[in-house]
């Protein structure tokens, strides 16, 4: 279970997160929606300590700490047990698809090469890329790169997988491939926090939806509640602007 309490983040004088609480049970999928600049990405990045949160408390299973007093091993614990899928994939440029996946297994998990390669091959097969293992990122399409990134994240067997707008940088034709991979991961019982603009997908895949507005979680509930009967005026505006029917069919 992952729990975030009162998370605040300032970028110098600009407060981006104003005290966000969230809890995701094991196997749960929380989708964070909201307009650009509402703090969605920062929230994810704070959980993975790619940004240092300013205030709040983070609990992941048996480890709980005040972010202000986060020690090096707390940061390392969070990074080891969460895995991020980035909007721009961020695959290691000079490593093949296979090496991208084995890297963490070898260096962080200290697996033997044989074990690492075996697991990486399995993960790449799972995302449908068994014929692209020897390719470098620049030789892959965007959708393929993102699927490698998902395989890389999954191979680390994280407690929570964080997806930061995983399809925003993709051409429409490639989005479906990536979404179907994510959907399968969600169904496999992996705990997930997903930031996405694919509302139809969010509706399908998540069991909780959080609407973030200007650094505050204005509303949280099941997808049916948030999309069907939004309580807050800002949520209503946002939901009415995104057309649920005009999304890609998975």
């Amino acid at each position: 279970m992952i729990k975030v309490q009162g998370l605040k983040k300032w970028f110098s004088s600009n407060q981006v997160l104003k005290g966000v609480d969230l809890t995701v049970a094991d196997g749960g999928v929380l989708a964070v929606i909201g307009a650009s600049g509402s703090g969605k990405s920062t929230l994810l990045r704070c959980i993975d300590f790619l940004e240092t949160p300013s205030e709040g408390r983070i609990t992941l299973d048996e480890v709980s700490f005040d972010v202000k007093k986060a020690r090096k091993q707390d940061v390392q614990y969070m990074r080891r047990h969460t895995a991020m899928v980035f909007q721009l994939f961020n695959l290691f440029k000079y490593k093949t698809a296979l090496e991208n996946v084995t890297e963490g297994l070898l260096v962080v998990k200290k697996m033997t090469r044989t074990q690492a390669v075996q697991l990486a091959e399995y993960q790449l097969e799972q995302v449908g890329l068994s014929d692209r293992m020897a390719y470098y990122p620049n030789q892959l399409s965007g959708g393929q790169q993102q699927r490698v990134a998902i395989a890389r994240a999954l191979a680390m067997d994280p407690k929570v997988i964080l997806l930061d707008e995983p399809t925003s940088a993709l051409d429409p034709e490639m989005i479906a491939d990536v979404l179907s991979v994510i959907q399968r991961v969600a169904k496999s019982g992996r705990t997930m926090i997903l930031v996405s603009h694919e509302m139809h997908f969010v509706y399908d895949i998540s069991d909780r939806v959080m609407f973030l507005d200007d650094g505050l979680a204005l509303e949280e509930g099941t997808p049916q509640e948030v999309f069907g009967a939004p309580k807050h005026e800002r949520t209503q505006q946002f939901i009415s602007r995104v057309n649920l029917n005009n999304n890609y069919v998975i």
Partner: peptide, 26 residues
């Protein structure tokens, strides 16, 4: 690119590992 370092950190590599295996070779 900053994303290369972030990717390495996000899978739990230490600063030194990131420097040695990702940043310096690139």
């Amino acid at each position: 690119e900053k994303g290369q370092m972030e990717a390495a950190q996000s899978i739990g590599m230490t600063t030194f590992q990131t420097l040695k295996r990702i940043i310096v070779p690139e």
